[in-house]
Structures are given as structure tokens and as C-alpha cells.
């Protein structure tokens, strides 16, 4: 798989490590979240067959976090964003 890095251009997937579903960006507030919210955040996944948004870390590159939208049926990479931009757009400041 080739990951189209928004800053560096096409990079081999071997340079990255995968964390998992991009929903991990939306961490519940530990001081206010319910038990169920924290449990689901930590342990439960949609795991869809088809389009999946996921967090990739460019460990052997510029060490940026990316949100890669990819098909889990064909491995086609559909879209790549900087995770920073995605998180900011979702109202997370850091």
C-alpha cells in the first residue's frame, strides 16, 4: 500500500505503524465520561467491511499522525489527512 502523505507525498506503508480506528481521536473526558463511554472507547470497535478511517503514525518518516481513509475490502487508499487537521475540525484544541 502507498500512503499519500499530505506533506511528503507517496510513502510506503512499511514506514508507518497503525493505531486503529480514527474514532480514537474522540477520547471521552475522563472526569465526566460514563463507565460505558470509557469501556466502548477503549475496547469496542465498528470494524467495518468497506470504508474505514484509521490513525497511522509515520514512525520512520516525519512522525506525523495521519487519518487514512481506506477500504478494508480492497486496500485502496481513498483519502489521507493530517490527524491534527481532523482533530481541530472536531473541536479538539491540542
Amino acid at each position: 500500500m502507498i500512503i499519500n502523505h499530505p506533506l511528503l507525498g507517496p510513502r510506503d506503508s512499511a514506514e508507518f505503524v497503525v493505531l486503529g480506528d480514527a474514532c480514537l481521536i474522540d477520547r471521552p473526558d475522563g472526569m465526566n465520561a460514563t463507565f460505558e463511554e470509557l469501556h466502548d472507547y477503549a475496547y469496542v470497535r465498528d470494524n467495518p467491511a468497506g470504508e474505514h478511517r484509521e490513525l497511522w503514525y509515520h514512525e520512520q518518516g516525519d512522525r506525523s499522525w495521519l487519518v487514512v481513509t481506506r477500504s478494508t475490502l480492497t486496500h485502496e487508499v481513498i483519502k489521507v489527512d493530517l490527524a491534527r487537521d481532523v482533530a481541530r475540525a472536531r473541536g479538539r484544541s491540542r
Binding site: 500500500m1 497503525v18 474505514h52 475490502l73 486496500h75
Partner: peptide, 10 residues
């Protein structure tokens, strides 16, 4: 190491 339902790897 990535989610997939394709029965092949890279």
C-alpha cells in the same frame, strides 16, 4: 497490522 477483510496481505 491494519484492519482488513481482503484475504491477502502486502
Amino acid at each position: 497490522g491494519y484492519n482488513t477483510y481482503a484475504q491477502r496481505g502486502n
